[in-house]
Design a protein around this nucleic acid. Structure first.
Lengths: 127, 127
DNA sequence: CGGTTTTTGAGACCGAGTCTCAAATCCCTC
DNA sequence: GAGGGATTTGAGACTCGGTCTCAAAAACCG
């Protein structure tokens, strides 16, 4: 019981996510899937994304309109630097944060929970 | 033309916001307003919050369910350290970030847009 | 192929947020 | 404090992202 099947919808979604290092909304994925000739229902898109996120194979983030977006993501713990211009996401190692975390604690008595940091700006190619 | 009136709904909302340094959702404000005997319609709550945000007198943020939340905010540019436990918000001066911003640029070629940073963790009294 | 389990899709449903427009409020003047 | 023009409000319809349901379809296994 509780076995997992490999299905066409799941593979089609994974393929799209793996192709680009950026966040996709469910609506965006549905549109892409329609175009690519393998339409998938909204319900299934949401279910699949939720499943990937639970397994740690996708990162979830809410965009500035409050919509859930997802990105393929297989490494360990890290943060995201998101380009405002092209949407490209670059991973930021935790080490880069250490001195800042120290200051936050000594200046503000604030103990940072490192699992929720996200940075916005311009990437190499968009500066 | 285009004058601004001071009305009871607006004053009631401002009063609630000013009383605590944390973010309130529109639903939360509606409930508080009902309790306090000056009920205000959802439409008006949203309009008032939008107006405050536009004038820079309130900060907008989306919570983890994608709902818009608002907090009274009258200082200049700064970031927020938000306590996961009590919701209390502490302002973080930009200076604390300088060395981190440098590293982000040299290591990742990423130019941080400093206007969108937000930190989560535990505040002094909740650690 | 046949049977069992998992997955899918269509569409109903939910809830946050927006929009509309007539009625109420504000404020200025007399 | 009454009159009147400009602004604001409230009730409720509406939109849209996301969830839920359940019968039908697909995946797997012998």
């Amino acid at each position: 019981m509780e076995t997992e099947y490999e299905t066409r919808p799941r593979e089609a979604i994974a393929r799209i996510l793996r192709a680009e290092p950026r966040f996709f909304s469910a609506a965006e994925l549905c549109a892409r899937l329609d175009e690519s000739g393998t339409p998938v229902s909204r319900a299934t898109v949401y279910r699949t994304l939720e499943r990937l996120a639970a397994k740690g194979e996708a990162a979830l983030r809410l965009n500035d309109r409050g919509e859930a977006t997802f990105m393929s993501c297989d490494n360990g713990h890290h943060h995201h630097a998101i380009c405002r211009s092209c949407g490209r996401v670059e991973d930021v190692a935790c080490g880069a944060l250490d001195s800042f975390v120290d200051r936050l604690r000594s200046l503000h008595g604030f103990q940072l929970d490192e699992h929720s940091l996200e940075f916005h700006g311009k990437c190499r190619s968009c500066v």
